[in-house]
Amino acid sequence: MKQNLAMKKFFMYFFLIITSIMFFFPFYFLVVSITNASVDITRGRLLPGTHFMENFRTMLETTILTRSVWNSTIISISQTFLSIFISSLAGYGFEVHKSRGKEVIYNIILLSMMIPFAALMVPLFRLFGTISGLAPGLGIDTLFGVILPYVSTAFLVFFFRQNTKMFPKELLEAGRMDGLSELGLFLKIYIPTMKTTYAAAGIVTFMGAWNNYLWPLVILQSPRNYTVPLVISAMGSGYTIDYGSVMIAIFFTTIPTAIIFFVLQKHFVAGMVGSIK
């Protein structure tokens, strides 16, 4: 019996170690590569090198990257705030308020989660072409154009409604007694109570916005408007590619999502758990 237990432990740790190595290895490769010269990276060198400063300088000379970090920051932050606010309004509305036909509308919103983005891309591009004609600052090749399709998402509406099921509704009654308006209840009671949910939604949305590639590729045309993934993709697809500087660009542009994740991660699992009950 004892031996059996020892065997079980051994296999468990063996499995754990193998899985952890598999999960860590690509990160290790990335970190090692930022210190290696382009030639060594293409040879698959797995040991740290001495080219960090050189790669770093090449990256800084790629001025378009600095600009793209700024663009991505503006886009990701405004997209995160807008879509979380608008979607949580609806998620809250669906769960707290009553109306005829409410479930029908909700199901239509859920259905829209199944539409692949590839199916919307062409008409959206044309729609923004029309918007460009009316208001050039809001159409094709603008940061606004990148954000607009994501100002609310079906996934977030679903996410907030599910989490709201655990929201103590007595708090609302108490707030009504105190004479708060419906919007006041939402802003002053719901949002502070649901911090965990907002944190989890914030992580998911920010990561999605920061890493989004296809739509910015379609809608942005001039390099000064490029977002980070577009610049990195361009850096990695020329005739002579300096892999060292690509790797270091990848490394540095991953830091913002990593910071957001590690700052909010305490709430993350709890927020996600609430979302699927």
Partner: peptide, 27 residues
């Protein structure tokens, strides 16, 4: 109550209509 429900979900309905439903029909 019915009115406040609609106030809460109108922003989502408007934006999803513009960027999902309209493109599906146009497409």
């Amino acid at each position: 109550k019915e009115l406040s429900f609609w106030l809460f979900i109108t922003p989502v309905i408007l934006s999803l209509s513009l960027v999902v439903i309209l493109p599906v029909i146009m497409g």
